[in-house]
């Protein structure tokens, strides 16, 4: 039963991946002219030099320009298996795989830390609000959450920039390392410097996701506290803490787990946007520049990463949910 589900799931994942790649490919093809011509022209304008004829020929051959669309697509997709995601115009013909590879780790580190931070704050607050329903703390938290839900990430990042630079005169704004540490090997001092850069962007990211998580947790738990089995647990003589955590909150987490698949790409989006505003060394800044400069291999690859994150997030969510809820596992 369970194995069957995994097989079915794997097949549908492969199919979805195919669709995602198709759409990303179409996006890459959207701008007029092919990427190589754009690259050649750009080099002429900026560097004032013409690319060597053999380089142009090599690139045309590599991506199948001039050949039918489906062959171009196959060449592009085939490249993935060799770690070839195309080249970037704005990075002077550097491999997209290298550019993305250097930044993807930091990107997902931010995403995952933000997720942990937002759950770590939202879940206890949601439990507190639900168990103190209609009291002052509940009203306060719910209003703050609404506020947090309504402010876009980028606006908070801009406000932070303003406050940090003009009011606090902070040295830790922009990037994730101070100048002296950018290329230094990891050390305690570098780590501390990193943390000080990281704290606020992370917090801004976490706040955005937190409001929704808090509201869902609160509503779920309120529903569950009305369930008969919660009264059964109390009737057993259990401590109220045990009743709340083991019998109600534990189950109230399940919808949050289901939502994880949606939350990951949203956090990734947030990371990208905040990184653009605060110039963090994640996929954000190159993606932004790539979109403006129509650097389509780079932009298309980041788009694919976004879509694949959604897919992987959903698979992780399904697995976690099956572990957490026996009804999903057996049903």
């Amino acid at each position: 039963m369970f194995q069957n589900k995994i097989v079915r799931r794997a097949l549908s994942t492969v199919f979805t991946l195919f669709l995602i790649s198709l759409i990303s490919f179409l996006v890459i093809q959207l701008p007029p002219g092919d990427v190589v011509s754009t690259y050649v022209k750009q080099q002429e304008i900026i560097a004032g030099s013409r690319l060597p004829a053999e380089t142009i020929e090599y690139l045309r051959e590599r991506y199948g320009f001039g050949e039918p669309m489906y062959l171009q697509y196959l060449k592009w997709v085939g490249g993935f298996f060799r770690g070839d995601f195309g080249f970037s115009i704005i990075y002077d013909g550097a491999e997209v795989a290298d550019i993305v590879g250097r930044r993807i780790g930091m990107t997902f580190l931010l995403v995952i830390l933000a997720l942990i931070l937002s759950w770590g704050m939202a879940i206890p607050l949601g439990i507190y609000a639900a168990t103190h329903k209609n009291r002052f703390a509940d009203y306060l938290l719910s209003n703050v959450a609404l506020f947090g839900l309504s402010i876009p990430d980028f606006l908070m990042a801009v406000i932070y920039l303003f406050v940090a630079i003009f009011l606090l005169d902070s040295n830790y704004v922009g990037g994730l390392f101070s100048e002296g540490f950018v290329d230094a090997p990891w050390s305690l001092a570098r780590f501390w410097d990193f943390l000080q850069h990281l704290a606020v962007p992370l917090f801004i990211l976490a706040i955005g996701g937190m409001a929704g998580t808090y509201r869902i947790m609160r509503a779920n738990l309120l529903d569950l506290l009305d369930q008969q089995f919660v009264e059964t647990a109390r009737a057993k003589g259990l401590k109220e803490r045990t009743v709340i955590y083991k019998h109600a909150a534990r189950i109230a987490l399940n919808p949050l787990i289901s939502r994880l698949g949606m939350q990951l790409p949203v956090l990734l989006n947030g990371t990208i946007i905040i990184s653009i505003v605060l110039d963090l060394p994640t996929l954000g800044p190159p993606f932004y520049r790539a979109l403006i400069a129509q650097d389509m291999y780079l932009a298309g690859t980041v788009l694919m990463i976004l879509a694949v994150t959604l897919l992987i997030g959903n698979i992780i969510a399904d697995i976690l949910l099956a572990i957490s809820d026996p009804r999903v596992r057996d049903g």
């Binding site: 089995f229 647990a233 003589g237 534990r250 189950i251 026996p326």
Partner: peptide, 24 residues
Amino acid sequence: MRDIRGGQIGMIFQEPMTSLNPVH
């Protein structure tokens, strides 16, 4: 009270379908 509740007085309810915790 917790010693009495469940210890000296047991209770069962109207809705057996929802009286037990689904995840334990």
